[in-house]
Amino acid sequence: MIIEHPLLGPRDSQEFTCLGDASLLQRPDAFAGDAADTFFDYQYLRDNPAGTHRELWYHEMGDRSWLVLTRDTRTHEILAVELASDVVTSGGRS
């Protein structure tokens, strides 16, 4: 695969490590009363769609950026690539 890095342009996916579901950006509040439930859900349950999937990739053999890819799991087509820090900072955590 080729990932269109938002800063560096097209890079071979071999340079990256995939972590998985971008919902991991939405870490719950550890002090909330339902933290046991929200952390279980956060850590263990996945939507796992056959279709558009938002997921985290790390440019480990490159600039060490964490990226959020929007990718179709049926075709591997990549629809969007964003810097994870931009996604979080702009509030659109997922």
Partner: peptide, 20 residues
């Protein structure tokens, strides 16, 4: 800029990552 090097007689600077 990202993916670039700049420099002169005394220093070179390589872009390594965002803000780095």
């Amino acid at each position: 800029a990202p993916g670039q090097w700049t420099g002169n007689d005394t220093h070179g600077v390589i872009w390594m990552g965002p803000d780095q």
